[in-house]
Every structure is written in C-alpha cells, then in structure tokens.
Amino acid sequence: MKDFQYAAPTTIQDATSLLTEHGSGARILAGGTDIIVQLREGLREADIVVDIKKIPELSDCQYSDVSGLYLGAAVACCDIYENADLAGRYGALADSTHIIGGWQIQSRASVGGNLCNASPAADTIPALIALNAEAQVTGPAGQRTIAVAAFCKGPGKNALVDGEFVVAIKIPPQSANMGSAYQRFIPRNEMDIAVVGVGSWIELDTVGNIANARLSLGAVAATPLFAEEASQFLVGKEPNDDNFALAAELAKQIVTPITDMRGTAQYRTHLVGVLVKRTLTTALARAQA
C-alpha cells in the first residue's frame, strides 16, 4: 500500500479546502470499507485521505414529515436498519443497508460512501433511486443537489467534480400508504455482490390502486437504472400479480447486462423479472400494512 497523508477536518469548510487543494489526489474516507481495499489493492491512489466522520453534518440523521429524511453521508448502515422508525418508513433502504457485507462492514460502511463508490452493483443505490432520493453536494462552487438516479456516470465514476463531496442524502417523507423494498439475487445467502438488485417503491391511492411507483435496477448496466417506463405503467393500475408481471417485462427491456463470473446476460435479464415481481409484492405488503 502506498503511503498517504491523513486529515480529519471538523467542518465542511475545512474539508472543502483540503479537497480543493489536493484535487484528484484526495480521497474521502467515511466507513472505509471500499476505499481502504481500493488503496491497498492499487485500484485507486491517494496523496491524502480525508476522514469526514468528524464533521457533524455528515453524521447527522433526522426525519421530519415535512422535509423527509436527512441522512448524513457518513452515517453507518447499521444506524439505519437498527432504527425501527426509519426502517419502517424506508423499507428499501433498510433492506439494502442490512445486506451490505457482514455485520462488521455494516458497522462502518455508509450509504454516502456506497453511493459515491458508484458500483453498478451497489445495494443502496437502487433503493435510493426507488425512494427518489437526492444527494446534497458541496464544493468550491457552493452547494448543489443531484438526483441519485443521475449521480452515477459509469462503473466507479460519479457526477462529482474535484473538490466536491456528498454531505447528505435527502429522501422525501413517507406516509402510511407508501411502501418500498430492495432485494438482490446472490449465489450465497450473505457476503456477496448482487448479480441483480431491484428496488421498488409504491404509493397507493384511497381505493388501493397504485398512485405512484418507482422501480430501479442494479447490476444490469454500467450504472444503476431508474426503470421509468415500467414505473409509469403501474400508475393507476391495480396492484396485482398480472400487473407486476407486465411491469417486470417492461423493466427487462431497458437492461444491458454483461456476462461475467456473477452471471450471464441472459440470466441477469431473467432475474430482473423475478426480482421486480418479488420486490413489488413486498413493497405492496408494506404499503398496505
């Protein structure tokens, strides 16, 4: 592992200065579960590692019925699924944070880090897309907001420019008629990378039909995808197996998976259909509960 410097700023301003000063030579450390491995294995390099966990805004986690969830970028996965209120509201996020690595990883890994790492197979990103989340970003040019659905630009590449970092993730408030779920398919039962991951979110209207839906797909393209057409199809429909199956077929049409050691393109496409139906069923049950 190549040597680097370490800094742990306590304010957003100090962090921004450090990141601006070092440009692409700076790497952000939150939970460290990706970046430390990447530095060790030479997949990424750093002159300086900037530990952002001491900045209060990045460890903050608050919910309000008006503004929804403010999730500091450095908040660890276990802080989400262990929070019964949050886990109840944001089922897809709880599902995904509970299956990233093992318990030891979940104690450290952050949703912000999982997002910035921009893996096509990241577990939280489809959940965030389904929940219509956006990333609150700060940098030398000030603050801006990026929809999570537009955040990833390719495997390992994100929309941030040098000096920028994600401060928080914001997710719209949830009411009782909404439900969401994330599932992935893996060969083992834990400790694995998604062959395919699917996030589903639905909102029911007063008669129980689907008022709104968002479907998202992971590990089937260079970036996690928002399945817009499949989501739109469900709007106004009865939430039943037939409609879920039709949505699943629409979702399969937008994927461009690769064949690799985790699965063939054919198998991945098939799994999209399976998981769209399964996650919609779970999301529905949660919205009806």
Partner: peptide, 24 residues
C-alpha cells in the same frame, strides 16, 4: 475458479470465491 479470456483468475478473494458462510 473463474478465468477470463486471457486465462487470468478473476475471483481470487473470499468475496468472489464463494465458500459457505454460516447462513448457507
């Protein structure tokens, strides 16, 4: 063991060489 087209092993880690975990 998975090998790529260049006959290089691609899954030389406990993440991708999938030995049973306790949950399996």
């Amino acid at each position: 063991y998975f090998f790529n087209d260049d006959d290089q092993m691609t899954n030389a880690s406990f993440l991708d060489y999938r030995m049973p975990t306790m949950l399996d």
